[in-house]
Simulated assay, not measured.
Amino acid sequence: MGRRLLHRDDPAKAELIGNIKVTREDWLGAALDALIDGGEEQVKVKVLGERMGVSRSSFYWYFDSRQDLLDALLDHWQHCNTAALIAQSRKTAATITEAVCNVHHCVIDAALFDNRLDFAIRDWAKRDVAVRAVLTTSEEARVQALTEMFERFDYAPTDAFARARVLYFMQAGYDAAELGETLERRLSMAAHYLRIFTGVEPQPKELQAFADFVRAVDARDSKTVAQS
């Protein structure tokens, strides 16, 4: 995911008026970039202000303290990444393999689920007990949502829980491994992964729909990079 546009630089946002040079959204976006690029230690009010060309007083219009900003980053992560995964697990699906494909949209689409932000939060949690507690609660909610997804397709509770954990933690480890696989290589394995995750043979139309989604996202992202 590229660096977030500042509110004042984004033509899709309403024009800023008066003495307002940046918004709370701008401060949060700049802090998210800093967190992802260098960890929470790089989330410094002075540095963020210099990047945006504004004084520290602008920051205190929106946040009480640096800790308030850090708390906002965690809240943003939960309301974006965790909420997105849970919502995808609850999407209407005719089969369990289609349901798992819905969840894997999160893996593919950074606009839906920011994988880099997830890694940044995990890294942060290694050094902060409070963040570790938030991460644990969030991951439990994600696994619970996936467990309920399997249960909707008549998997026994323990089996549903085990499959949910395999699905969730396998993907986390897969992304961390940074295998550098091509898009087509990953798609060629989709049917095999779905069979392992669910014990069910995926339908050709499900695999085609997933492949179409993946290629559409890849084309969109490639176009965005080319225009930037």
Rank of each mutant, 00 (worst) to 15 (best):
L32V: 15
L207S: 09
Q67F: 00
F119C: 03
E41D: 07
I20N: 02
T95M: 10
L135M: 09
D128H: 13
W27R: 03
R56W: 02
V103S: 07
C106T: 13
A226R: 14
D114E: 05
D68G: 06
V43Q: 09
C101G: 01
R56C: 04
K21Q: 14
R90K: 15
R122W: 05
L5R: 05
R163M: 01
P157L: 12
L85P: 00
S89Q: 06
D64Q: 13
A83M: 08
V134N: 07
L35D: 10
C101M: 07
S188I: 09
M170W: 13
Q171L: 11
D33Y: 04
E151P: 01
R185F: 11
L28V: 03
V225H: 07
G199D: 08
G2Q: 10
F59H: 14
E40A: 14
E40R: 06
C80T: 14
R51A: 05
T137Y: 03
G53V: 11
E25R: 14
H105L: 11
H79L: 13
T136V: 05
E206P: 06
M189R: 14
F210E: 05
A125H: 08
L187E: 07
L167V: 11
D221Y: 00
L146Q: 01
V22T: 11
Q144V: 00
K205S: 14
M170C: 00
V225I: 12
R165K: 13
L6Q: 06
Q208T: 15
W27L: 13
D68R: 03
I108W: 08
Y174L: 06
L6C: 03
V45Y: 01
P11R: 10
V45A: 03
V217E: 07
E40V: 15
R185W: 07
A30G: 08
F213S: 09
T182F: 09
A141L: 07
D109Q: 08
R8T: 00
R220E: 09
L6A: 13
M149V: 02
F169S: 04
Q88T: 03
L16N: 09
A93N: 09
S55W: 04
L35T: 01
I36T: 12
R90D: 11
K126D: 15
R24D: 08
V217S: 02
A125V: 01
S222I: 02
A93Y: 08
Y193M: 12
P204M: 09
K13I: 05
A94I: 06
N81A: 07
P204N: 09
C80H: 13
R122I: 04
E178M: 14
L73C: 10
E50F: 08
D212Q: 10
L32D: 03
D118P: 00
L207F: 10
A211I: 05
L16F: 11
E184V: 01
D175M: 09
V217N: 02
R24I: 10
L146R: 00
R56K: 13
A162Q: 09
Q78T: 12
W61S: 00
Q203R: 15
F59W: 02
D26V: 00
R186K: 10
K91T: 09
H105M: 13
V43S: 04
E148G: 01
L74I: 08
V100G: 04
L112V: 11
F119G: 01
